[in-house]
């Protein structure tokens, strides 16, 4: 498979399908862990209102890419402009207002085990919107739970929820603070095909209802088909191809073909 990886197409680097304003602009991003170079030279743009799907094999650096965007990992080189501000190497104090505009759905859901669903949803709200009134908080929590179809789970503990329910609650916790950008880290991994389809629909609903711009990390082709406005394929720390989902499906590259078969 190594030999099938081709350099990224030079022409028409970006194919915006949302607004023309980039909300995230990454240039020459490099990240290594010890001797292992995970991201070699990644440049991409996320345009306002679009869903950008990042495909790639496990270990290709997809999750590392979005963790660099949100400042959970510091890049070794390159720039990551989020709403025009470079997040790479800035202080926690400067990062906090930017993080309030970004929602991050973790692969494992990352619900706080020791808290109920209500407390999980209250946690980011109380910290990001400190002056929020109790009534508004309650209304907002009910609204997002209804949006993910789990209004009845309000007082349950995460251990009482199924995998799909945990993902939904995690999504609710992410959208409760009205983020402008959503980063989804393998949102359908470990779920059955029906629940995966429901999560993909929810991603589309979030885009429409909350007018978010999203990066969706996945290797689930069904999820990519139903959510992508634009697709990027990462391979060995570099962007292998960028385009619409149809371009990938019609590709003659054996590596890309093997992904879509």
């Amino acid at each position: 498979m190594m030999s099938t990886i081709q350099p990224r197409a030079k022409s028409n680097e970006t194919l915006p399908t949302g607004g023309s304003e980039p909300v995230i602009e990454i240039s020459g991003l490099k990240k290594s862990f010890g001797q292992q170079e995970v991201l070699k030279n990644v440049s991409l743009k996320l345009f306002n209102g679009e869903n950008l799907v990042v495909l790639g094999k496990s270990g290709s650096g997809k999750s590392v890419l979005i963790k660099c965007i949100v400042g959970l990992l510091n890049a070794d080189a390159g720039t990551i402009n989020v709403f025009g501000k470079d997040v790479n190497g800035i202080s926690r104090k400067e990062l906090t207002p930017l993080r309030q505009k970004i929602g991050f759905l973790f692969q494992s859901g990352a619900l706080y085990d020791s808290m109920t669903v209500r407390q999980n949803l209250e946690f980011p709200m109380k910290r990001m919107k400190k002056d929020i009134k109790d009534k508004d908080l309650e209304d907002k929590i009910k609204e997002v739970l209804e949006n993910v179809g789990l209004a009845e789970a309000l007082d349950k503990m995460p251990s009482q929820l199924s995998g799909g329910m945990r993902k939904r609650i995690s999504l609710a916790r992410t959208i409760v603070v009205d983020p402008m950008i959503m980063l989804y880290d393998e949102p359908t991994t470990g779920l059955d095909p029906i629940t995966s389809g429901e999560i993909s629909s929810l991603i589309m609903d979030v885009q429409k209802k909350y007018k978010t711009s999203s990066i969706i990390i996945t290797h689930d082709i069904k999820c990519a088909r139903s959510t992508a406005n634009r697709v990027i394929m990462l391979a060995e720390g570099e962007i292998l191809k960028e385009g619409k989902i149809e371009d990938f499906e019609n590709s003659t590259d054996p590596f890309i073909k093997s992904f879509f078969e």
Partner: peptide, 9 residues
């Protein structure tokens, strides 16, 4: 969960 806390400011 620690990462989730970090991104929740």
């Amino acid at each position: 969960q620690i990462d989730a806390m970090e991104v929740s400011s």
